[in-house]
Design a protein around this nucleic acid. Structure first.
Lengths: 177, 177
DNA sequence: AATTTATGTCAGCTATGTTGACATATTTTT
DNA sequence: AAAAATATGTCAACATAGCTGACATAAATT
């Protein structure tokens, strides 16, 4: 008997391809597209000593100013200990500021500062430029199809979080100009 | 003078939205879509004590059996020290096997084993299912538009890496079935 | 007054990336 | 044949960003 376990396992020489009814084309396109999509802001963040974790916090604080720590944790799906480090740096560097909740004084409402708004815009700009370039030769119908596809890729129960952001209509298209 | 720096910075209460010509809709759809897209395999990987790093290695070893360590490093854009840990675990667990390069005996060709192929398929299946569901009500034209968009989101110099994978025609559509 | 809630903080652990230095086998160049 | 370059492996130390568990404080709720 041949030993086909551990380091002696027999190599498979045929490439995995779509014959199993698996959509490898979109799987790997999505992988590469997202990787390059995030690489633009990464270059800017590095100058501030920030990472993607900072980007995510800054993004949502700008998209929904005044959200509480608990709300932010719910969107990011991380622990408060994890958030604490990143948030502290953003506050110390003057990109985010905390305001005591007006109704419930235990809460800390998070707001961007002018500096934080500027950085959030600087991070979004190259991403938006990349999107615009990628959509250049697309028709209005194609754009609508792309938005519908991306939204359908999100877990149904999380779609509410998207709809909760300013300017996003529940279950509607996201057409902007 | 008001002190608008550090912890005393003035909060901005208006939400960031598309008025700066920035495509926030697709930025955040892409963010949420990719997050949930990767969550499916994460659940399976956890059962093996593997993470996303293992997934990426296993994916490309299956997509291009026989690639060398150097080629893999080039696709993943990580250091060999980083790859070493993850690759060792995949080899020890019998998912990947190494074969001495036939022409250049310094090279180690990487191949999936039967077990590695099975796991790669198991990881791709829920992702493909999610894609199929998201494309359900899409026309052929819309699907083509989505693929063209995703490919256009990738850095031009990296598109060659996609085209190098089996079944992907350079600059062509990725239509399957 | 007691309990629950929102937040903060300390300590330690894990996964995945990094750099630098060096070893080994093999191929290429001189 | 000797020297240099290349492909890979390995050791050590470090950074980032996640995690769990435990505990503290202030404020709201019961």
């Amino acid at each position: 008997m041949a030993d086909n376990t551990g380091a002696n396992a027999k190599p498979i020489r045929t490439a995995l391809s779509g014959e199993d009814g698996i959509d490898l084309a979109i799987i790997e396109l999505f992988f590469f597209a997202y990787r390059d999509f995030t690489s633009d802001p990464d270059l800017i963040l590095a100058k501030y000593g920030f990472g993607r974790a900072h980007h995510r916090v800054l993004y949502f604080v700008n998209r929904k100013p005044g959200l509480t720590v608990a709300e932010l944790l719910d969107v990011l799906k991380i622990t408060k200990q994890s958030l604490a480090r990143v948030l502290k740096q953003l506050i110390d560097s003057g990109h985010v500021t905390q305001v005591q909740g007006p109704r419930d004084r235990r809460q800390r409402e998070l707001y961007p500062t002018a500096r934080g708004r500027t950085l959030a815009l600087a991070l979004a700009r190259p991403q938006s430029r990349r999107i615009r370039a990628a959509l250049e030769s697309s028709t209005t119908t194609e754009r609508a199809g792309i938005e519908r596809f991306l939204k359908a890729m999100v877990n149904p129960e999380l779609r509410a979080q998207i709809d909760n952001l300013p300017g996003n209509m529940p279950g509607e298209d996201h057409g902007k100009q």
